[in-house]
Simulated assay, not measured.
Amino acid sequence: MNQGASLNELTPERRLRRLELTVTRRLDGLLHGSYLGLLPGVGSEPAGSREYRAGEDEVRRMDWSVTARTAVPHVRTVDADRELATWILVDATASMDFGTTEFEKRELAVAAVAAVGFLTSGTGNRLGAHLLTGDGVRRFPARGGRTHLLGMLRTLLAVPRGLPPTDPVPLAEAVTGIHRAVVRRGLVVIVSDFLDGLDRDGLGPAAPAWEQPLRRLAARQQVLAVQVGDPREHDLPDVGLLTVVDPETGRRREVPTASRKLRERYAAAARQQQAAIAAAIGRAGAARLPLRTDRDWGADIVRHVRAQRRLGRAARRPLAPEGGAS
């Protein structure tokens, strides 16, 4: 998305104003009607039945009357509640201070938080957040209103960059923390690059350290994992001898990018790493929304919302009578 100057080049208030206009202009109207937004939300209003999906549906949601009538297992579907409690866990650690295109990953994370906040803002809706930084976790209680959301975004924009972590908290521990804090069922959005907690850079057989905490969280909440990335995390350009620095540890390494074999090995390892992250999020039962600094993040969010709304409508579509016209 070409928006002129980078967010990082604007004053905080101008950044917030741009984000709000981007979200409201491009995404306004997508959530009108039945409240189905970033995910097909949990709720309490009956909306019909659909066939049971093994491994996805809870047995306690079984619609026994329809199951008996059709001889095929069905589960009840519901419309999402009008009042929604949304919690966001946003990663603002040093690995997010990286970007080789229009945005840094940190800026893209701020945009994602703004989109979630403005999309779920409405009468009675509340938004809370856990902000993971190199100094630990800062918590914001769930409250309603635009002023509360803008205050959270200002805090996120003001997180210092380039400082060594003083009290590092692993992503897995942060996920566990929000799992304990959120009691009432609702929507939890995790915005991160998900690079923390990978076994041998995500290439080994072991699951990421955050997978089990994410699985426990998704068992109780609707979970959306917003994975923020940059194209240079997928492939290296041929720019000669490149000095790379690990933002978490400060370690430096000289990389001879002129070597085609090295670039190919890097790309293959990156594909394996990204596949491992996507598979872990899927196994945990969370929805995944990938955003990249070289892509139109607004369009990606729009596509995700529309796809989720189609899923919601399909789940509520009435069944054709047995033997009737298709």
Rank of each mutant, 00 (worst) to 15 (best):
Q272V: 04
A307E: 11
P165A: 15
Y35W: 10
A307S: 13
G204H: 04
D81K: 13
G117Q: 00
I277V: 15
E20K: 14
R139V: 15
R252A: 14
R253F: 08
A209R: 10
R50A: 07
L163Q: 13
G324I: 04
E20S: 13
L19A: 12
N8C: 04
L131A: 05
S6L: 03
L84A: 10
S34Q: 14
A172K: 03
I88R: 00
W210H: 04
P237Q: 08
T257C: 11
G29H: 08
T257F: 07
E322W: 09
H130W: 13
R15L: 05
T155K: 11
G136I: 08
V183D: 12
E211M: 15
L198R: 02
R216S: 11
Q308V: 05
D57L: 10
R252E: 15
G37Q: 05
T176D: 15
A109K: 01
G48Q: 07
T86E: 00
A320T: 13
D238R: 14
I88H: 00
T133H: 01
D199K: 02
A158N: 07
A279L: 14
G151T: 07
L119G: 10
P318E: 07
A111H: 02
S192P: 02
H234E: 15
W87E: 00
G43T: 10
R283T: 11
H304I: 03
D230N: 09
P141A: 11
G145S: 04
R143Y: 03
R309P: 06
G144R: 04
T86L: 00
F194P: 01
E9G: 00
N2F: 12
G43V: 10
T120H: 13
T133D: 01
L156H: 00
A279S: 15
A267E: 14
M152T: 01
A275W: 08
A278N: 04
D97F: 09
V113C: 12
V302T: 13
L127A: 01
Q212A: 15
A286M: 09
A315D: 09
E83A: 13
G144L: 01
S34R: 15
T147E: 08
W210R: 03
P290H: 02
S192V: 02
P231D: 10
H74L: 08
F103A: 14
A112E: 00
A111N: 02
G33M: 07
I301F: 02
V183C: 06
R82E: 12
W64F: 14
T77A: 10
G285W: 03
R180D: 14
